[in-house]
Amino acid sequence: MRLTAILALLVLAALIAFVWWSGAYQTLLWWAARQQHVVQTALASRIQALRSGDGAAFWSLVGLCAGYGFLHALGPGHGKLLVTGGSLATQVSARRMALIALAGSLAQAGAAILIVYGSLALLSGTVKGTMAASEGWITAFGNAAIALIGGWLLLRGARGMRAALRAGHHAHDPGHGPGCGCSHAHGPDPEAVARAAGPMDTALLIFGMAARPCTGALMILVIAWRMDLRLAGVASVLAMGLGTAAFTALVAVLAVTSRDTALFATGGGQAGRIAAPALQIGAGLTILVIGASLASTALPG
């Protein structure tokens, strides 16, 4: 069984490498971009139709927005990064992670609505100022939040690693004979506690996804606001969020399955004990590095 798991991981890694190096992934992105061009053209025509009083255009607009969200999610993005990192670094179930992806995508839509409508209505801001703010300091804030989440996972991974190494040391204690069953857990060890995905992690992941609004959503909200199609704008952006969530949830399921397979493959010995915190450290470090590099490139100057 363990051999099967190792083989499955190797096949998955080979598949990912093949998809990348064969140019298939890049070609997929190119294809998705072409489809998006078609979708954006249709979006504009539905908005024009809605403005000229064609009520039926509302539903085709909402449907198109869901497609836009899905196509957009095919490219790499911070939501998929957080979901993958969160899946690898915690013991959350695939079902729960998919729900977190859904909540995060909808929260991102909600944040876009809040930013655009809030700024234009309450603060009577200008469109230019709103867009500059959301692509400036709001995005910078989101990047910093992502880096912090990475740091948080890294810290906990390091703690878990220390606990695991100590436990490993304990396993060599002469008091334990061979076959004593050290591999199974003796109650809630500190490492497992450190890896549990509590409400804090869930909230952080959802917040991290929401903190960087999507340009497409901002654009459609600005258009809807200026054209007095405000409800349609809200419905469109929520539909975009659902489309994004559909693909991000797929990524979440894949990431959780990979994690479970990896932990199963490393087994219950010392390798298995350090595998979990090592995954957490890797995921935390990756998110930290990306968040920090995004934050540094997004800084004005």
Partner: peptide, 21 residues
Amino acid sequence: TGLALAACLSAGSAAAHPHVF
């Protein structure tokens, strides 16, 4: 591998996402 992944994701998250055609 983690660093390589980080490098390609960081570039990718800024790019690979056309918004304007």
